[in-house]
Write a protein that binds this DNA or RNA. Structure first.
Lengths: 339, 339
DNA sequence: TTGTATGCGTTATCAT
DNA sequence: ATGATAACGCATACAA
C-alpha cells in the first residue's frame, strides 16, 4: 500500500535516498537515515517483493512440483516429511515455497512454469510419476534452473537428485529374511520404469542368487505402486506358488495390503508367511502385526535436497552431485522363521 | 528470458500489439495476430508473472500460514488433507499456493507478509496455535486482505472462518458413551483458550448434565494438545478417580496416547475403560484397538474454505459468513459397555 | 488496427 | 551525501 514514494515525500528526500536507507547503505547521513526510518515505521512500510523481484531478478521463492495422482501428491506419505524438512532449510535461508497448483496452463511445462514465476530454484517431488514426462524432465535438466529431484535421476549443470540407497536397503531386507531361513521369497515391485523400483528389484534378484536360492521370475510381480495391484499380486502369487513363505514388497502401503490379503486368504502373518515392506510410513508401526520394513530417512532426504538446492542457487561454481542416503532395517512383528 | 520486446522486434510491430495479441484482444488484425503468435511460440515465450503482477496488482497466488510447533505445521495430521483440498480448488481457479516459510523477517506480521508478497488471499491453518498472536489476528481481520481461517474464529469484511461442528460432534460422542451405559466419563481437553477446544468441553459438560450424570470438574483435565499432557492426564485422572469407565478425549493423537497409557496401567480397552477420540486421523483406524472417534470432514473443510476465499477475492460485494461443517461418529473397537 | 507514452515499486547508475 | 533518471517486463489509456 505505502511505497517509498510516500516516505520520500513525507521525509522531504528523494526516493533513492529512501531506498538506500532502507537497504542499509553506508553513505546516508545519520540524521536523514533516522528520519526516514522513523517515517517508514510510522507508515508501517514494507517493501513490495514483486517490484523488488522485477528489478533484481531474484524472487526468494522455491518452486515445488508434486504429482496429481492418488498417493503421489499431498497424499503421498512422504510428501509431508520431506517438504517439512525442505521448508525448514529454505525458510532459514530466506525463501518462501511456492507450490505449483494452477491448472489453467495446458501448454505449460515444468520449465516454463518456473520461468513464468521466476522461481530461484525448484524441487521435484514426483515419486511415482515415472517417466511419462521424460521430455519435460530433459527440458528442465538443460534449462539452467537450479533443480533438485527426489527419487528421480535428473542430472544437469544446475540439477541433480537425492534418493535413498534403495539397493542397499533392499539387501538388508533380504538378508533379514534369508537369515530367518526363508527360501521361497516373493517380490512385489512398484513402477517398473523408475530407478527407485528397479534398484529394489535388482537387490532382490542379486540376493536370491547370493544366498544360493536362485532367481525365479515366477516369484516376482511388477506393476506400479498401488493397493489394488498389491492385492491382485498377492492372490496370484499365492495361487501359483503356495509354497511362498515370505514377501518382500517395494512399499509399505502395498505391504500392508499384502498382509490384509494374506489374512483374507486364511494365512497368519508372520507364522505362515512373513512380510517386509519399504519406506517406514507412520502406519507401518500401527498396523497388525506391526510391519518389518526398510526405513527411508525422509527428513534427511528433504533437508539434504534443500541444502544442495541452496548451494546451486547461491554458488555459481558448484558442480551438483547426486546424493544417496542410507536406509535402516526396522524389525517389527511381520517377520518370523518359516514353519 | 524472452520478452514481448523480442517478439515485437522480430514481428516488426510494437510491444502493445504483441501484448494485445497475447491477451486475446479483439482489435488485432488476423494476419498480425497469426504472425505474433507464431513467433511467440517459436521463441517459447511465456509471460513474466512478476512483471504482470506489478502492473495488474494481482499475483494469482494464495498465501498459506501454518504453525511451527510440533504437530501444528506440516506435521499436523490435518494439514495434508485440508491443504490438498485447498490446492485442488484454487488450482482449478488459476492460483498457485505460496507457503510462508521465510524466517528472516522478525518484525513481520501475517498482514505485512501478505502485503509484501501481494498475495490475492490467505489461508490460516494455525490449528492449535491458540491466541498467542491475538494482535496479529486483529490486524489481519481489519486489513482488508481476503482471508480464511481454519478453526480460528476470525471475522472481518474480507475475512471469516471454517470449522467443524465441534459441539455437535462431541455430543454424538457423549451420546454414544451414555447409550452404552457409562456414567463416570472423564474428559481430556486441548488448548483451553481455543474455540475448538472450548466447544468440545461445553458439549461434554452439557451432556453430563442432560444425561443426568452431573458435571464434576475433577473428571476434567485441560492442557493443550500434546501426547505428554495426555499421558499425564490419564495417570492423574485414573489415580484420583479409579472408577472412571470412559474417556472422551479432544483429539485422536491424545486419545491414542490415552489408550497406550491405560494399557500400561494394566487396563483393558475397551473392556475396562472405553475411549473416544476426535478428528479421525489415519492412525485412528490402525491403532489397537481401532479408535472410536468423531470424524472431521477435512477434505470438505479445505474445499469450503478455498471456495469461500475465491468468492471473497473475486466478488467485491460478498459478505463472508463463517461455515460450520458436520461431523460423524465413527464407531470402532475402543468403546464397549462398562463392566 | 496499430503505435506512443506512462506507470506499477523498486534498485542501480550516474551525476552533482 | 543526495537527487535524477533509467531500467525491469508488462498492460493500458490515449493518439493516430
Amino acid at each position: 500500500m505505502t511505497s517509498i514514494k510516500d516516505i520520500a515525500r513525507l521525509a522531504g528526500v528523494s526516493i533513492s535516498t529512501v531506498s538506500r536507507t532502507l537497504n542499509n547503505y553506508s553513505d546516508v547521513k545519520p540524521e536523514t537515515k533516522e528520519k526516514v526510518i522513523k517515517i517508514a515505521e510510522e507508515l508501517n512500510y514494507f517493501p513490495n517483493a514483486v517490484a523488488k523481484s522485477l528489478v533484481q531478478k531474484k524472487t526468494h521463492t522455491i518452486g515445488v512440483f508434486f504429482g496429481n495422482n492418488m498417493n503421489l501428491g499431498f497424499d503421498h506419505p512422504f510428501f509431508l516429511d520431506i517438504i517439512s524438512a525442505v521448508r525448514e532449510v529454505v525458510g532459514n535461508a530466506g525463501y518462501d515455497l511456492i507450490i505449483f497448483t494452477n491448472k489453467n496452463k495446458e501448454r505449460a511445462t515444468y520449465t516454463t512454469l518456473c520461468r513464468e514465476r521466476s522461481v530461484d530454484g525448484v524441487v521435484l517431488l514426483l515419486t511415482g510419476e515415472g517417466k511419462k514426462k521424460n521430455e519435460q524432465f530433459i527440458e528442465l535438466q538443460e534449462s539452467g534452473i537450479p533443480c533438485i529431484a527426489i527419487d528421480l535421476p535428473l542430472k544437469g549443470d544446475k540439477c541433480t537428485y537425492v534418493e535413498s540407497d534403495n539397493y542397499f536397503g533392499s539387501k538388508l531386507a533380504m538378508e533379514h529374511l534369508a537369515n530367518l531361513g526363508h527360501q521361497v521369497i516373493a517380490f512385489i515391485g512398484g513402477d517398473e520404469i523408475s530407478k527407485t523400483s528397479y534398484d529394489r528389484l535388482r537387490a532382490y534378484q542379486d540376493s536370491m542368487m547370493e544366498y544360493g536360492i536362485g532367481y525365479n521370475p515366477n516369484l516376482v510381480y511388477l506393476g506400479y505402486f498401488s493397493k489394488g495391484i498389491a492385492q491382485k499380486a498377492t492372490k496370484e502369487l499365492m495361487r501359483q506358488r503356495p509354497d511362498i513363505t515370505a514377501f518382500f514388497v517395494a512399499s509399505d502401503e502395498m505391504a500392508i495390503t499384502v498382509i490384509e490379503t494374506l489374512k483374507a486368504l486364511g494365512k497368519n502373518v508372520p507364522n505362515d508367511v512373513s512380510v517386509v515392506g519399504f519406506d517406514d510410513i507412520r502406519e507401518a508401526s500401527f498396523c497388525t502385526p506391526p510391519l518389518t520394513t526398510v526405513k527411508q530417512n525422509k527428513h534427511d532426504i528433504g533437508s539434504e535436497a534443500a541444502k544442495m538446492l541452496l548451494e546451486i542457487i547461491e554458488k555459481s561454481d558448484i558442480k551438483p552431485k547426486p546424493k544417496t542416503l542410507d536406509c535402516d532395517l526396522v524389525i517389527r512383528d511381520s517377520t518370523a522363521p518359516p514353519k
